[in-house]
Amino acid sequence: MGQGLWTKVKQMTAFALGTIQCDGSGSLLDKVRVIQADTLGMIQGGLTVGSTTSEASCEAIRLSCTILVERLKPIKKKLQEKMSSIKWEDLILQAYKQAVNLSASSYYVPSNNSVNYLNYGAAVSEIS
């Protein structure tokens, strides 16, 4: 049984960046890459218990992606004046050419105490 944290983070990233609604942004999940990290190598990594890691990681991703989407919106608007269809790759290339900061970070701490954090889990195993 595991959280599938990397999968959750990839899904949240694709969802949050997809709000800019470019053509082909439905396939953003394939463009997201999660790299190895652990609580020893991360600043303020904290505990990884009670599913708080999923909540905090996904919300931090959502906040970071919101920053990026806000930076990309003006570029998308200008591109829409020139062409009717804008692909994700074209938007990012244009942002790169305009030296838009395509990096964002965020730190999220759940408002509740992990002692009071409710979580439920289920696991199924088939042995043949």
Rank of each mutant, 00 (worst) to 15 (best):
T66Y: 13
T66N: 13
S64V: 07
K78N: 13
L72M: 11
R62K: 15
E55T: 12
R62Y: 14
E55D: 13
S51G: 14
V69Q: 03
V49C: 13
V69H: 07
L68N: 00
E59Y: 13
E55A: 10
R71G: 10
C58I: 02
A56S: 15
S64W: 01
T52A: 15
L68M: 04
E55P: 00
S51Y: 03
S64C: 07
V49A: 15
C65L: 06
T66H: 12
T66A: 15
A60H: 03
C65Y: 00
P74G: 07
T48G: 14
A60W: 01
K77M: 05
K76G: 11
P74A: 06
E55I: 09
L72I: 06
C58P: 03
L63I: 15
L68K: 00
S51C: 15
T53K: 04
C58F: 09
K73D: 05
K73G: 03
T66S: 11
G50P: 01
G50F: 05
V49H: 05
T53Q: 14
K78E: 11
S54T: 03
L47N: 10
A56R: 00
C58G: 07
C58H: 04
T48F: 09
P74H: 08
E70P: 04
A56E: 08
S57V: 00
L47F: 13
V49N: 12
R71E: 12
K78W: 01
V49F: 07
A60I: 07
T52I: 10
S54V: 01
V69D: 09
T48I: 09
E59L: 15
S54E: 04
R71P: 06
S54K: 02
E55V: 08
E70G: 09
K77R: 14
S57I: 00
S64L: 03
C58Q: 07
I67V: 15
K77Y: 05
S64P: 02
P74Y: 10
C65N: 00
E70H: 13
L47S: 13
P74V: 06
T53Y: 03
E59S: 09
P74Q: 10
C65F: 02
C65W: 01
A56C: 13
R62W: 10
A56Q: 06
L63E: 08
T48N: 14
S57C: 02
S57N: 04
T66G: 09
L47Y: 11
I75E: 04
S64E: 01
P74K: 06
K76L: 10
K78H: 10
S64T: 04
S57M: 01
A60C: 04
E59I: 13
K78G: 12
R62A: 14
T52S: 15
R62N: 13
K76W: 04
E55R: 09
L63R: 14
T52L: 06
S57Y: 00
K73S: 12
